[in-house]
Design a protein around this nucleic acid. Structure first.
Lengths: 246, 246
DNA sequence: AGTGGCATTTCGTGATCACATTTTTATGGC
DNA sequence: GCCATAAAAATGTGATCACGAAATGCCACT
């Protein structure tokens, strides 16, 4: 992941398919789409100013990575997580991310720990400012700085995919994210354990954080399947409610 | 209205891309290719009797699933696991597969346990016969019967992907697989624990099996990175060593 | 106004082609 | 015999098009 951001120059020499893929991936992770949105090949191609081919390939790639779902007709759609799917996703994260932390721990030298401390400090400051975007970004930075240190490319890729798939439902929770200020912030605790060489404790704290966040979201979120039955009946009477059309 | 034409056989009504994908996936899992083999779009398309488009899409899909690697030029290549990559893969499996077992345990009723017992019995018989292919297949059946019972589609998909990626190196180990007869066979132990409702014990046994198998393979296998330096020198003197498959 | 049926638009799939780059093979010089 | 070099074959990418299926919109009819 490039640290320096130079979109124009960076995108200039890229293959079109790679450009489309990155744009779509960024849009997905950034909450540009809502769960249920349909992304047709031609519309994406038009929006990106390219022919169908690169857009098609990019959409298929994201679908293969589980970042998009495919309708039976082949149309790509932003995943609409059901409650069981979200629980499953959280359970997988609760296994893989502590694993990544344990793998990373031996590689975290003083400089790396110092960098993590800076992230935590920045996070606390951002939270004091009420800058929820910065909080979220720094939360992510803290964890992925650790995961990258694991030097486990396959595992890192899996975790990124899981986050990407969780992305859309998180952005629908933008309102709840503010309330999440009351959620226990475990990164300081994790950092402390890492500093002390207590790898198992750090791993357990991370697992606990993931589990807690999952429970919080399960409580705060109304999932697609939760209200589906009654909504279907309601939709018969009031055809507007929330069409899934794009 | 007929949604799609009823296929005469399983492959008849299939979209070409799906057919290519399944054929390639089956070939990969079945050991038809060797690590390092290059699969070019046109050659695959020719072999399957279709145009480039479906073959291209199928190869890209497998690459996105990490079942194939891509050279910088875009050519697909059967993954050549290095030792660190294999260790990483095993570590991920050691987390995810026990998780799947724990999720599956509540759903394993008497009939399911009976089916598992039949698989174990068949496995023991096949091992007595020296039928290593059947042993391998029943080993896989035993585990995936459990994993499917977890009713966790995302997790199942991840595990399948990991197995697919591990596939090629396993088939290079065909010779060693026979010697693996001495490897502890933990499935009976797992089944016993499941029968007794000892989920944690079953999970631990599965994790131990994965770890043991990983260590065995690490000992028996010469990985790509292990002998790369000297082999490159040898290849300069004997240019034939191993031609790329087609 | 509600409804059934039909036309239009949109969509994914797959074929074919041009183009630039890479990889392989043949060639010639040492 | 060995290696650099050029010719040739192979390869990935992306554009464009045709085709059938699906979704949408429209309008006449009741």
């Amino acid at each position: 992941m490039p640290l320096t951001v130079q979109p124009k120059n960076a995108e200039e020499g890229l293959a079109l398919e790679e450009l489309a893929y990155r744009r779509l991936r960024e849009a997905l992770g950034g909450g540009a789409f809502l769960p249920g949105d349909r992304l047709s090949i031609r519309r994406v191609a038009d929006a990106l100013g390219m022919s169908s081919m690169p857009a098609r390939t990019a959409l298929r790639r994201l679908a293969a990575e589980q970042a998009l779902d495919l309708l039976p007709t082949g149309t790509a759609v932003v995943p609409r997580l059901t409650r069981p799917a979200f629980i499953e996703l959280s359970a997988i994260r609760a296994e893989l991310e502590p694993l990544a932390l344990r793998l990373a721990a031996p590689h975290l030298d003083g400089a790396a720990l110092h960098g993590l401390a800076a992230i935590v400090a920045g996070h606390d400051e951002a939270r004091a400012r009420g800058d929820s975007d910065a909080v979220r970004r720094l939360d992510r930075d803290f964890l992925f700085t650790i995961y990258r240190a694991a030097q486990a490319p396959l595992l890192l890729n899996l975790i990124e995919t899981l986050w990407l798939r969780r992305g859309p439902i998180f952005w629908e929770l933008r309102w709840a994210a503010l309330a999440a200020g009351g959620m226990r912030h475990a990164h300081g605790e994790i950092l402390l354990a890492l500093r002390g060489g207590q790898i198992a404790a750090a791993s357990a704290a991370l697992r606990q954080e993931i589990t807690d966040a999952s429970l919080f979201i399960q409580g705060a979120m109304r999932f697609a399947d939760d209200d589906a039955p009654k909504d279907r009946l309601a939709a018969l009477k009031r055809p507007q409610a929330r069409a899934l059309g794009g």
